[in-house]
């Protein structure tokens, strides 16, 4: 067993209206930041998990996304797996 650090990124599905992203884009423009486009606000979910392999950790992370962490109707997700700092490899 190895301890992995999992990062799940959940973002609004591309092409779906993202009023939160639009509001942030507007505020950045007001502050004078020029050339900002395609602003989207999502979530980052980080946790540690024991698994036999990196592949298994990723698979379980993706299963979590399908069942709970992301809404398949409105969101996309990606799962990144890395050995947890200090874990035996």
């Amino acid at each position: 067993m190895t301890e992995y650090r999992i990062e799940v990124r959940v973002t609004p599905r591309r092409g779906i209206l993202d009023p939160q992203g639009n509001a942030v884009a507007g505020a950045l423009g007001t502050l004078g930041f020029r050339g900002v486009r395609e602003v989207h606000v999502g979530r980052l979910i980080v946790f540690h998990m024991d698994a036999e392999s990196e592949g298994e950790a990723k698979e379980r992370g993706e299963a979590m996304c399908r069942q709970l962490l992301a809404n398949p109707v409105t969101e996309d997700f990606s799962v990144q797996v890395a050995a947890a700092p200090g874990s035996a490899r």
Binding site: I16, L17, P19, Q20, A23, N71, V73, T74
Partner: peptide, 10 residues
Amino acid sequence: PGALMRNRSL
């Protein structure tokens, strides 16, 4: 079916 999203007006 479907989902409820943030109000367009925020």
